[in-house]
């Protein structure tokens, strides 16, 4: 089900000049959330139908919620599947970040995520310790390999969940769609993951991106924590603050530690990452969340191509923030 809106907001045409750029907005529903595309161009080069086609193609490859999708077929297969371009690109990134982060980002955590009730199927009770222990041997991205055009697994029960980075990837794919139509000024957003390039026209103002203020756990917050200006790149956020499940006294956040099988427990509340593209940012924001504050900051010192803004909880319950130098330079101060 896809609703598309096309809305043009134009100012008067300047006489004699080359056709001025105007803002075009596209928005609708995708991947269980909403998307919004704004681009500045002389005409409506990209329409809602183009976006819808692109989104459907990605869903058919990467969505756990689309029956018969390539990823679902991989998860059901004993050995593997022939991967399409989307699956190949996203898995390659997932495996690279898995290695780079010492397994903090692990796309094979799906059986544990499902056991805790954050997967496509509802669960009635939290998993027992024994159930978690039984699932752990199925987890580990070192059991997944790209070989030629195939995606294969070492153990039949291994499942992939690319939801953590599929939105970032989708944002990049939509940005590429705009780029193919020679559009160089745009902002693409899917489910809070963003890719931006250029400026707003007319006027030439830089694009401003708000970082959500995570003072709530499942309802709209009261404001923004920060506003940044970004010339080009991806900016994404991972947070542990909204999605919770509770069964009596047992409570679990949705980011599950692939090593232990239980929700990550550290002081981080959210991690916002700026990188060259949204796929990269989206993969690392998850990994940072799993590291805890000290390790995340040490990791960022070793990875200068990533800029990050971290919110964490102090022992007294208040929330504080910290950011890399590069991120601080992006912040707009009113």
């Amino acid at each position: 089900m896809l609703h598309c809106f096309l809305l043009a907001i134009g100012l008067g045409l300047a006489a004699g000049a080359p056709a001025p750029r105007r803002a075009y907005h596209l928005s609708g529903y995708a991947q269980g959330t909403t998307y919004a595309v704004t681009y500045y161009a002389a005409d409506s080069a990209v329409a809602g139908a183009d976006v819808a086609r692109q989104l459907a193609e990605i869903d058919a490859s990467l969505s756990l919620y689309a029956p018969g999708s390539l990823i679902n077929r991989f998860n059901q297969a004993a050995r593997g599947v022939v991967a399409d371009r989307h699956l190949r690109l996203v898995v390659r990134k997932a495996l690279a970040v898995y290695r780079d982060t010492g397994g903090r980002f692990d796309a094979t955590v799906e059986p544990l995520v499902q056991a805790w009730g954050f997967g496509p199927r509802p669960v009635a009770r939290p998993p027992s310790a024994a159930a978690i222990a039984a699932l752990l041997p199925l987890v580990g991205s070192d059991k997944v390999h790209l070989r030629g055009d195939s995606l294969v697994k070492d153990v039949p029960g291994v499942h992939l969940d690319l939801n953590g980075i599929a939105q970032g990837y989708t944002v990049d794919v939509l940005a590429a769609l705009l780029e193919r139509h020679r559009i160089r000024n745009y902002l693409v957003e899917v489910g809070g993951e963003i890719r931006v390039r250029g400026r707003k026209w007319p006027g030439g103002a830089p694009m401003r991106v708000g970082v959500e203020r995570p003072d709530t756990t499942d309802a709209p917050p009261a404001g923004l924590q920060q506003v940044v200006q970004l010339r080009a790149g991806g900016i994404t956020t991972s947070g542990n603050y909204r999605k919770f499940k509770r069964w009596g006294p047992v409570k679990s956040a949705h980011l599950i530690d692939p090593k232990t099988g239980y929700a990550f427990r550290n002081e981080l509340v959210s991690a916002t990452v700026v990188a060259r593209d949204a796929l990269t940012a989206d993969a690392y924001d998850n990994a940072l969340m799993g590291m805890g504050l000290a390790d995340a900051l040490a990791f960022l010192r070793r990875h200068r191509h990533l800029q990050a803004y971290l919110l964490y909880q102090r022992p007294d319950g208040t929330v504080a923030d910290t950011a890399t130098r590069g991120f601080q330079r992006l912040i707009v101060h009113p």
Partner: peptide, 8 residues
């Protein structure tokens, strides 16, 4: 702002 990044 032109967009917002957030976990949800």
């Amino acid at each position: 702002v032109d967009g917002v990044t957030g976990a949800t």
